[in-house]
């Protein structure tokens, strides 16, 4: 039965990366339609949560949520609520209000209307989530960037669509934020951040999400620089202690967000990882690898 399952793979540019969807199903037409609908779900996330698109719900919030609240769609609000919870449970490490700082360092385009002062330190505590999917900033100058969570959310949205379509199994990979579901496992390579052309280890991923944050492609954004866009919200400084962090979690949204937390605070993230049923694998600055004790039981090696 399983051997008759055909595999269909498609890739389209979304969310500033190349999103790849692999579907295994014995019905080709079902698989094709499921992939189309999954990409449509991803494009909705892109439209609503892009920091770069001036027409997105997020950009409206950034432009208008002070002093009056702005109403957003249900999904954007859900992501904001998750971001708020992650901000709380991470002790403020996960903070989508670092956008102005990233603009200053050149990782995000300057917002229309120019850069406002960041002398007043903002945090997600300055964001109010109100009834009726409304968002309000407590003061001017707050700006949100969901880049640390929206890609994972888009992957989860696509997986929900594929699951509902009744395909046997599928993998959605948005530039390294990925999630597999269904009866089959998918071999996934983890890049060696010292040699991005090589994978360091292969994993068989089944019914699980995996996300990796690393510094290896940051030089594309800032020539010569080997820093990634990781800002410690408490210090407002770019950090680069780890070379890369890979997190396995039940959902891609959580995995995506947790990679940022692990990168910023590897010494204190274990309780949170544990609480969210997540495991992690990291490269330290010397290129040595460490994992959480639950990593090996989470994965079987691919070889």
């Amino acid at each position: 039965m399983k051997s008759r399952c055909g595999e269909l793979r498609r890739a389209r540019p979304f969310l500033g990366t190349i999103v790849e969807i692999t579907v295994r199903s014995d019905r080709e037409q079902v698989a094709k339609e499921a992939i189309d609908r999954a990409f449509a779900a991803i494009s909705v996330v892109q439209r609503q949560m892009s920091f770069h698109d001036a027409d997105s719900a997020l950009s409206r919030v950034n432009a208008e949520a002070f002093p009056r609240p702005v109403q957003v769609d249900r999904k954007t609000f859900r992501v904001l609520a998750l971001a708020r919870d992650l901000h709380r449970v991470s002790g403020g490490i996960f903070d989508p209000t670092i956008a102005p700082y990233l603009e200053q360092t050149g990782f995000l385009p300057e917002f229309l209307g120019g850069l406002r002062t960041t002398e007043k330190i903002t945090s997600f505590a300055d964001v109010e989530l109100l009834s009726g999917n409304r968002v309000r900033f407590r003061h001017a100058g707050v700006r949100l960037d969901l880049g640390g969570i929206a890609k994972g959310f888009a992957v989860d949205e696509a997986v929900a669509v594929l699951r509902a379509a009744g395909v046997d199994s599928a993998l959605v990979n948005a530039g390294g934020d990925l999630r597999a579901f269904g009866s089959s496992s998918f071999p996934i390579g983890i890049r060696n951040p010292c040699y991005p052309g090589r994978t360091f280890v292969s994993l068989l991923v089944k019914n699980r999400a995996l996300a990796t944050s690393a510094h290896y492609f940051a030089d594309r954004l800032k020539p010569g620089a080997r820093i990634g866009p990781f800002v410690d919200p408490r210090l407002r400084r770019l950090r680069g202690d780890l070379l890369s962090a890979t997190v396995a979690a039940p959902s891609a949204t959580i995995a995506d967000a947790l990679t940022k937390i692990v990168m910023l605070d590897p010494a204190h993230c274990s309780t949170l990882l544990n609480r969210l049923a997540a495991a992690a694998l990291v490269f330290d600055p010397n290129g040595s690898t460490f994992c959480t004790p639950n990593w090996h039981e989470t994965f079987k090696a691919a070889a």
């Binding site: 998750l82 919870d85 992650l86 449970v89 390579g189 060696n192 090589r198 994978t199 360091f200 280890v201 292969s202 039940p250 959580i254 590897p266 274990s270 309780t271 990882l273 544990n274 609480r275 969210l276 049923a277 495991a279 694998l281 990291v282 040595s288 690898t289 460490f290 994992c291 959480t292 004790p293 639950n294 990593w295 039981e297 090696a301 691919a302 070889a303």
Partner: peptide
Amino acid sequence: LETDIPSKIVKDWIPFVAAPAVIAGC
């Protein structure tokens, strides 16, 4: 956000050693 809590508690980082066959796959 609340998911099933795994039985083993994550305490500290441990050195990650991949099986030789897996490393060859790099």
